[in-house]
Design a protein around this nucleic acid. Structure first.
Length: 273
DNA sequence: CGCCAGGGGAGCT
DNA sequence: AGCTCCCCTGGC
């Protein structure tokens, strides 16, 4: 158990931001997250965060996972002082980080996300983990489930995941699992590709369009120039950026701004939207 | 109870 | 480029 002081870091905001569907608020100040086969509990009081793991695991995994080597105030300082909307949005979501999550897990998660709400996305993912993921046990003896591997889903009937509530997205996930197991798409190669190439490659997968590919690029590959445009972002752009989002100004880290806008649109105050 | 939208994309025209 | 359909739960 180790204690850290961290600026611009809010477990609640990360939890709510909709990039990680396996992070949960357990009580007022406590949170849990499952990543790969790891399970972590955390507590936050202001800038003080307690991680229930040892220093080695923190330095070796969680620090990178939560993108704590990056100073987000640098991004915020670049915001156009005349753009009061973005200033508000960034101030409101200042504790958000772009996590570095598992590629396969993000592909499946955002296949499921389409035409879906966050509550149900979480349930769908919980369901497939319980049905097809390997059972694990945390330090307190509580069981949890790892994310199912591509191999464990590739052998299923295309409709099998309807049992897990995926609806028509079932075949997207199963077919995608097949293309990874068959070697049609090599995840390690995608990891090495620059943004545009990776996006192009991901869009060859059945069920992956531009928006989903951008989410995968942002939340798994940490390509911060990815700017996923969903219904909320689209509405915000129409309201506040009629001539398009200033991609030039924020070149290379538009994705960070996207997250501030997305979070603000979902949870921000109503008055100045 | 009914209704509607939800972090889209495929497969048509 | 525009249209329809895919599935079904949460939220109102």
């Amino acid at each position: 158990m180790i204690k850290k002081t961290i600026h611009n870091f809010s477990l609640l905001q990360i939890c709510q931001s909709g990039q990680c569907f396996r992070m949960f608020q357990e009580s007022d100040n406590t949170y849990s997250v499952i990543a790969n086969t790891k399970y972590l509990e955390m507590e936050q009081h202001g800038n003080s965060v307690i991680f229930h793991c040892d220093e080695e695991e923190f330095a070796g995994f969680w620090m990178k996972y939560f993108d704590l080597e990056n100073d987000y105030s640098v991004y915020m300082e670049q915001i156009n002082p005349r753009d009061s909307y973005l200033l508000h949005a960034a101030a409101f979501g200042a504790g958000i980080r772009i996590l570095r999550q598992d590629l396969w897990e993000m592909i499946v998660s955002f296949l499921i996300s389409q035409q879906n709400n966050i509550t149900r996305i979480r349930r769908c993912i919980q369901n497939i983990c319980e049905c097809y993921g390997e059972q694990q046990m945390n330090a307190h003896g509580k069981t949890y489930y790892a994310f199912p591997t591509p191999q464990s889903l590739a052998g299923l009937e295309e409709d099998a995941l309807k049992e897990c509530n995926l609806g028509y997205r079932s075949k997207y996930v199963v077919r995608t699992a097949k293309s990874i197991v068959s070697g049609e798409l090599d995840l390690d190669e995608v990891r090495r590709m620059p943004y545009k190439k990776a996006k192009e490659e991901l869009m060859k997968l059945f069920g992956v369009g531009e928006k989903v590919a951008d989410c995968i690029c942002l939340f798994a590959l940490h390509h911060l120039q990815a700017f996923p445009i969903d219904t909320h972002i689209s509405q915000a752009l129409e309201k506040h950026y009629k001539r398009g989002f200033p991609n030039r100004r924020y070149n290379g880290y538009q994705g960070v701004m996207q997250q501030y806008i997305f979070y603000y649109e979902l949870f921000g105050e109503r008055f100045d939207k």
